[in-house]
Design a binder for these strands. Structure first.
Lengths: 351, 351
DNA sequence: CGAAGGGATGTTTGCGCAAACAACCATGGT
DNA sequence: ACCATGGTTGTTTGCGCAAACATCCCTTCG
């Protein structure tokens, strides 16, 4: 009930139409100084006598003055804002990457502006990018497939640093990503080390670079080990698709070890195997990818490849801000390593 | 491989130091017209002869011109941007709400700027809000506890519309939220309807308004039905905390039905009961809250209260933009109803 | 006791854009 | 032939801020 804060102040104003926001000039007038002095106080510059500073601060308080960032940005030519263009937040990986990016950016004093791409068609992406060009953004981080950006005709913003996550294209863009191949190799290696004859794979959707990277590395790891390569199942990242793949896999008597391209599909596998009476890990081992916080609570707790989303986010921000400072692009790929987290869903095959 | 788009253009520029971004004046000079004409073309205003328009467009293309949004914002006094202040994205509910907000805002032509609050202390929140005041934002949506905003001394931004999610405070702020009580009542009602003597509850953390709302409604529903109110367990939203609560609950012989305050904790319950040999739903029924996409793949598929995050997001944007347009605040609470989704984790008690 | 020095404050200017106004041109009616 | 009309284009101005420069006044020292 205390009249502090926003609501009470707003009520002091005309209910129908608020006055324009107070500007430096207004503060200056009230404090009986020049606008420049207000600016100096506002920016903590030196050379303002204590008594004057107090007057100005009081005037600011009274008028609820906030510096206008548009004017500031216009003056300085930068917004201290990074645009993030993404297709969806519903994938857990995306939202965790985003969170890491937001946190890292905040530490550097940068805000994040989100630009959703409703439809993952070329049109959709280009639309967003065009809007981004008009937006108050110093740089862009793209969390989606770069090939969707490769439209031929549109003029993408010139001179805006770009960093891409979860995609390929390191020859043309700056890319930061989890080392998909590294992770897949660890998963397969773990299963083979346990003594399984081979490892099956439930891949993510074809249009995902991450999914392809994991699938390719899975196959390579098997071939390298000289073991047979079983047919590959396809999911769409969702647990439902993992469940459907699992129902099919449960009928394969040879299948004793499965590497799912993400934890959600692994969850679906666990349910399918459970329903079919295939006990995990006794009858069949499952490895996921991501290491979701909830993976410890799956039945059984999931052995999985841990992605360091925080590190990916940090690197993204670091690389994009470096480009902002140096005012130039620097293509190249930064890979963040993974690590295998062994829990209860893997075991040696039954004799 | 096509040299279109950003990378190719960037390569045309000096690698070490890019020229300043082209302004309207530059375009005007190249096209041999006045800056005002460029502005008219840029904004699709009438009264520009086709040949002139073509020249200007060509010049824009050549220079890679993008309107400077800082200048535009300064002129118009608005940013077409909504700030979202949040504590964490890791909660699934938050990230889904955010996604809905982003999508709705995009449809209205508004961008979203994210302001993370690293530490959920008062200082942290106020810090973020202060920064928001300086940011290029026309309005603010807060996804966190409003009581953290109730600090007495700091001057929150004046005249910036605010909408709060996942919190109380409808008397002072505009609040949009899922109808927690409604959801909890449905959950409890379902369990009692099935014939359970009572329903136990694993609540969320004390400092969460949503958690308290669900807990209070749970208790009220039991009392209303005239059934005994068992002791309440506390979790922290994570599946791990649900697991720990579940281990304790599994030892309660009377406990045949549990309502978990969210799906993640329900997941933990399922695992705990599974480990203790309490078969769900034969021996014990579990109801969650949220209806995560993965809830269908739990073992067994989870009966849960569905939250319409998309609707919450839509309403947030709608209400906050209405305030922007009318230039006034309008306290009051908008509640979004829930619905019960019955799956495989609930059943009548054993005789 | 006057000049030099330096801290505190004020004034001018321009960032990029677009509204408001001004100027100019071609056309058509009288 | 002349002016009114209206469509096209140019010029001026100010949004809010802060760097650069200008001014003022007080201290200090020869």
């Amino acid at each position: 009930m205390s009249p502090s804060g926003f609501e009470a102040r707003a009520a002091q104003q005309s209910p129908a139409r608020r006055a324009r926001k107070a500007s430096m000039a207004d503060v200056a007038r009230l404090a009986g100084v020049s606008a420049q002095t207000v600016s100096r106080v506002s920016n903590g510059h030196s050379s303002v006598v204590e008594s004057t500073r107090e007057q100005v601060l009081e005037a600011m308080r009274q008028l609820g003055y906030r510096p206008n960032s548009a004017a500031r940005a216009l003056k300085y030519g930068e917004f201290r804002t990074i645009g993030v263009i993404l297709f969806s937040l519903s994938s857990v990986g995306n939202s965790r990457t985003l969170e890491a990016i937001v946190d890292s950016a905040a530490q550097e004093g940068y805000a994040i502006t989100l630009i959703p791409v409703a439809v993952p068609t070329q049109d959709g992406v280009l639309g967003a990018f065009t809007r981004l060009g008009e937006l108050a953004v110093d740089a862009v981080i793209v969390i989606m497939e770069v090939h969707l950006l490769d439209a031929a005709t549109v003029s993408l913003p010139v001179g805006v640093p770009v960093v891409v996550v979860d995609s390929n294209g390191g020859d043309r863009y700056t890319v930061v990503d989890t080392d998909q191949a590294d992770g897949a190799r660890r998963a397969v290696g773990h299963l083979l080390d346990l003594g399984h004859r081979t490892a099956w794979h439930v891949a993510g959707p074809e249009d995902s670079y991450a999914a392809e990277g994991r699938a390719v590395a899975w196959r390579a790891a098997l071939e390298e080990a000289g073991v047979p390569v079983p047919p590959m199942a396809r999911g769409d990242w969702t647990s439902g698709s993992g469940y459907r793949a699992g129902l099919a896999l449960a009928d394969e008597p040879d299948c004793t070890a499965v590497f799912a391209a993400n934890d959600q599909m692994a969850l679906g596998l666990l349910r399918a195997f459970h329903e079919r009476g295939r006990v995990v890990p006794r009858d069949i081992s499952v490895v996921g990818f991501d290491d979701l916080p909830d993976a410890t609570s799956f039945i059984p707790p999931l052995t999985t490849v841990h992605q360091d989303f925080a590190e990916v986010g940090r690197r993204c921000v670091e690389r994009v801000l470096r480009q902002v400072q140096h005012r130039r692009t620097e293509p190249g790929t930064t890979l963040v390593p993974t690590r295998l987290v062994v829990r209860g869903s893997t075991a040696p095959p039954r004799a």
